[in-house]
Amino acid sequence: MDTEAVRSFVRAAELGQLQHAANELGVTQQAVSKRIATLERELEVRLFTRTARGVELTLDGQAFLPHARGIVTGVDRAVTAIRPGSRALRIDVLGLRSAQAVVLHDYWRSHPGTDLDVVTLKVNDPHVAVAAVEAGDIDASFRTVTDPATLPREVQMIHAFDSPLELLVGPRHPLASARTLAPPQLRRHRIWVPGIAPRTEWAEFYDQLVTEFDLSIDAAGPHFGDEVLLETLADSADVATLVGARDRYIWPTDHDLRRIPIVNPTLAYPLSLILPRTNPHPGLRKIINHFGSLAPPPETTWRPSWATTPRRIDGDNPAEEKVRRR
């Protein structure tokens, strides 16, 4: 089995587009397509279906993906065994437009020599990401286990940074002209957050947000992607959504969407980083220190009950720790 074909399959599955996989692998889209086609013939199954937005895994593709990741990881470990320290720092983020990816990109732009591999595991259960860290498939993951007692002893979870929320609305929404909004002003307005997966950290976040501020969070319907969500907001006079202040969204100018900060209190989503308890990748320390340089949210900030206080990596010298306590 061609391991580069398996690698192309894995990256296409994680990124959702053959072109993005090709760009990352340094080959043409046609080369990636041929590799995957060859792999499909060898396996005698279809791994992907083509969609308007890219590619989606078939049921066979979903079944093959975790094993394919294991193949790629095994090859990488074999190479690393003869070239110690050669592998890039691999960090899992929830999405390439998420605040985590934006912060990592900002860090990389100021440290262009950093060998960094940003991946998206596309799993809802944070324990799957924990297992990937524990197995060494990834070096760290931006996930939160809201009950830290369930973490295995081999991994630790530290606070990374807080992501303040903003209300995103179209030009005809009654709140569109506001410069800032306080949480009570959001009551009785429909806040659409489609695709909230049950028993995830963000499901628990929104449950607590609703209870605390008496908001109406509508999670109905599947999430068909950011483009559909943004089009819906642009055309609606009563639908809004919540986004992170650092999340990257791009829309056509005729959408005329408005991002409105929420204040008094600021609503903050706490982002955590899961990493090995012993011998973490040496590149992680500088990135974690970078989190400490980010502007903290205001003192009047609401966080969910499971938010943890920032703390140093286990084994660090406290005198050398630069992660700012907020």
Results as ranks from 00 to 15, higher is better:
9 F>L: 01
16 G>H: 00
28 T>L: 14
31 A>M: 13
36 I>E: 00
37 A>P: 01
38 T>S: 10
40 E>F: 03
59 L>Q: 13
72 V>L: 12
84 P>R: 08
99 A>V: 03
99 A>W: 09
100 Q>A: 15
100 Q>W: 00
106 D>H: 07
114 T>Q: 09
114 T>Y: 01
116 L>Q: 03
126 P>V: 12
137 D>A: 13
139 D>T: 13
141 S>M: 08
148 P>I: 03
150 T>A: 05
156 Q>L: 09
157 M>Y: 04
163 S>N: 15
167 L>Y: 05
172 R>V: 03
174 P>Q: 07
179 R>Y: 00
180 T>A: 06
183 P>E: 02
183 P>H: 00
183 P>I: 05
188 R>W: 02
192 W>Y: 03
194 P>D: 07
198 P>K: 15
205 F>D: 04
224 F>K: 06
227 E>M: 01
228 V>F: 07
235 D>T: 10
238 D>C: 04
240 A>W: 04
244 G>C: 04
245 A>K: 00
246 R>W: 10
247 D>M: 11
248 R>Y: 13
252 P>R: 05
253 T>P: 01
254 D>C: 08
255 H>A: 12
255 H>T: 03
258 R>M: 06
270 P>H: 12
271 L>D: 03
271 L>A: 08
283 G>C: 12
285 R>T: 08
289 N>C: 04
294 L>K: 00
294 L>Q: 00
294 L>R: 01
300 T>H: 15
319 A>F: 12
323 V>G: 11
324 R>S: 10
